[in-house]
């Protein structure tokens, strides 16, 4: 097993990530995103699994009117790129391995249940927030939007408020 490489310097990583956002906005008028790609996938999957029933869902109906093909969207392709990019980065730095990362005081099972619940909350929240930490918070700040600053403040503010309650999960 190769030794894990160190992480990139945070300021350098942030600077490059910021440049990437600028390039994306210059090309497309819109920044990066993640939760939107998951939404497109969910809707695409619903249409495959239950083509008729899914068209009865008002939200899907509304969505389909503007997105005829959820798979052929910018966010989905970006997410495919993201997967490859993450995998390559993990590969070159020797970090690709199957592992359940958890706090020292909980079992893997607890960690996985918490992961699912946390993800579920993030999924729901991202719909109300019209994007997650990427599309709403980071892009939102990049374009100086009040919504972006507000959602960043609320996400992190809530995080700090509730963190002591979930200390056992992590420390």
């Amino acid at each position: 097993m190769r030794e894990e490489k160190k992480y990139m310097n945070p300021y350098l990583a942030g600077f490059l990530l910021g440049l990437l956002i600028v390039v994306t906005i210059y090309l497309n008028g819109d920044g990066l995103g993640a939760s939107g790609a998951v939404k497109n996938t969910v809707i695409g999957a619903m249409e495959i699994v239950a083509p008729q029933a899914s068209q009865q869902v008002p939200y899907v109906k509304k969505y389909s009117a503007t997105h005829p093909n959820p798979w052929k969207t910018w966010l989905i392709w970006e997410a495919i790129g993201l997967i490859i990019g993450a995998f390559v980065s993990g590969l070159v730095s020797g970090r690709n391995k199957f592992v359940v990362e958890r706090g020292p005081r909980i079992s893997s099972k607890t960690r996985l249940v918490a992961a699912f619940i946390g993800g579920m909350l993030f999924g729901i929240g991202s719909q109300f927030g019209r994007g997650c930490t990427s599309g709403a918070a980071l892009d939102g700040m990049a374009v100086f939007s009040v919504a972006g600053f507000l959602v960043t403040f609320v996400i992190f503010g809530t995080g700090y408020l509730v963190a002591p309650l979930f200390k056992k999960l992590w420390l």
Binding site: A114, G118, L121, I124, S126, I155, T158, G159, V162, L169
Partner: peptide, 10 residues
């Protein structure tokens, strides 16, 4: 909701 999800899910 996202802040809560972040701390729980990591």
């Amino acid at each position: 909701i996202m802040g809560l999800g972040f701390v729980i899910g990591g």
